[in-house]
């Protein structure tokens, strides 16, 4: 009797196991690809996410876009009411108290300036920021200083979006800020190498300069083909004369890939090479004008 019961129990649990396996199999087969876009900071942001539940995916994308809009309100130099505009208007007259988030943004930007010996500079070389951590204030050392978020604004926005998607439990996602900064979580289903990204050649938007795979990292691109020579060397206050037409860099975060891309545009191939020796996990494709990976 007892043995019978036990046998029944074993058979039952075996059935349950198989049933659960089948169930989870069924769910996995129903994975959904969700793609959405949104215009913010003058660019079209695109998000692709994978997961079993459409409502969860849609909600996560909405929240990510809302976060990008919120950052735009914080960092825009076109919106007079943004925190950045407020600082630009007043920080030359004395210390301005800023939100912890904005203070962090300034600290990270200043850190990049130091690491790149001024090749990346959110003030575009017009002066220094005096940051007071204890009081969370910022002061400009000269009245000429104006913060320009262009160097890392999009990278930061993409990173925040990625954080929100991760918090929603999403394991496969790609966020693109108008193609110029792309950050990815995991891989697309069945593509273990990662998200395949073709970097366009400066010569034409239909010609590939290189192909890379993103997997928990980020790619940023700057070039002269869209807006002309819009990047200024903060050290000379002029467009650099190093023949660089396009730079694409890979780093873990969008903020970093965005910043080093701007920086390599200024430093050129040799400067990039020196920087990368100290940062072995990053990579860069420089087109000056021939495109090749920096050794």
């Amino acid at each position: 009797m007892n043995a019978d019961k036990r046998r029944f129990g074993i058979v039952l649990s075996a059935f349950i196991c198989v049933y659960l396996r089948l169930l989870s199999f069924g769910l996995a087969a129903q994975e959904i690809r969700y793609e959405a876009s949104h215009v913010s900071m003058g660019s079209e942001y695109q998000i692709v996410v994978y997961g079993p539940n459409r409502a969860v995916l849609a909600e996560a994308c909405e929240q990510a876009f809302a976060e990008i809009d919120r950052l735009d309100d914080l960092l825009s130099n076109y919106k007079p009411q943004s925190e950045l505009s407020r600082v630009n208007a007043t920080a030359a007259k004395g210390p301005v108290k800023v939100t912890p988030e904005f203070f962090d943004f300034l600290r990270v930007s200043d850190e990049f300036r130091r690491q790149t010996f001024g090749a990346f500079d959110i003030t575009l070389g017009r002066g220094r920021l005096s940051l007071d951590t204890r009081n969370s204030t910022v002061e400009f050392t000269t009245p000429e200083v104006k913060l320009d978020p262009g160097g890392i604004g999009k990278g930061l926005a993409v990173d925040h979006a990625i954080d929100i998607l991760k918090a929603a439990g999403i394991k496969r996602a790609l966020v693109s800020a108008g193609m110029s900064t792309i950050n990815a979580i995991g891989t697309p289903p069945g593509e273990d190498q990662g998200w395949k990204i073709t970097i366009r050649s400066p010569k034409s938007k239909d010609i590939a300069a290189a192909t890379v795979y993103l997997k928990d990292n980020s790619l940023s691109t700057s070039a002269t083909y869209e807006k002309g020579r819009h990047i200024i060397d903060p050290r000379t206050k002029k467009p650099p004369e190093n023949g660089v037409e396009a730079v694409s860099s890979m780093a873990i975060t969008g903020t970093e890939s965005d910043a080093i891309t701007k920086c390599f545009f200024v430093l050129g191939r040799q400067g990039a090479s020196a920087f990368l020796r100290a940062h072995p996990s990053d990579r860069a494709l420089v087109c000056d004008p021939e495109c090749s990976w920096v050794k």
């Binding site: 003058g42 660019s43 079209e44 692709v48 999009k154 790609l174 693109s176 800020a177 108008g178 193609m179 110029s180 792309i182 697309p188 593509e191 998200w195 395949k196 990204i197 073709t198 970097i199 366009r200 938007k205 790619l219 691109t221 700057s222 070039a223 002269t224 083909y225 869209e226 807006k227 396009a246 694409s248």
Partner: peptide
């Protein structure tokens, strides 16, 4: 998945 990267198109 097939994506392109390039400088931002406004």
């Amino acid at each position: 998945e097939q994506w392109w990267a390039g400088a931002t198109v406004s």
